[in-house]
């Protein structure tokens, strides 16, 4: 499974969401709230073996933005 497939899978599993991921933003769907955000961050950390900085967790405001943030951790999506 590629990093992109893993990344997509995490969003789909975390939020049980089958819509357009490229357009997905924080609070764009009900389940991506503050609790969902923490569960998403934990799943990303576990899957990619990284530990996200607080500033990056706060900046992680969309599916697209997340790709840029993960690149800082050498996770190329």
């Amino acid at each position: 499974m590629s990093n992109l497939e893993k990344y997509q899978h995490i969003f789909k599993e975390s939020f049980q969401y089958d819509g357009d991921l490229e357009q997905l933003e924080y609070q764009g769907i009900a389940v991506w709230d503050s609790v969902g955000h923490m569960q998403l961050m934990a799943a990303l950390e576990d899957t990619f073996g990284i530990e996200l900085d607080v500033d990056d967790i706060i900046d992680f405001s969309s599916f697209k933005k997340g790709k840029t943030i993960l690149a800082k951790y050498n996770v190329v999506i």
Partner: peptide
Amino acid sequence: VAVPDILDQFKPKSAP
């Protein structure tokens, strides 16, 4: 179990 006060510290900037 969640501690909402702590969760709120990690909200993305775009949150209202």
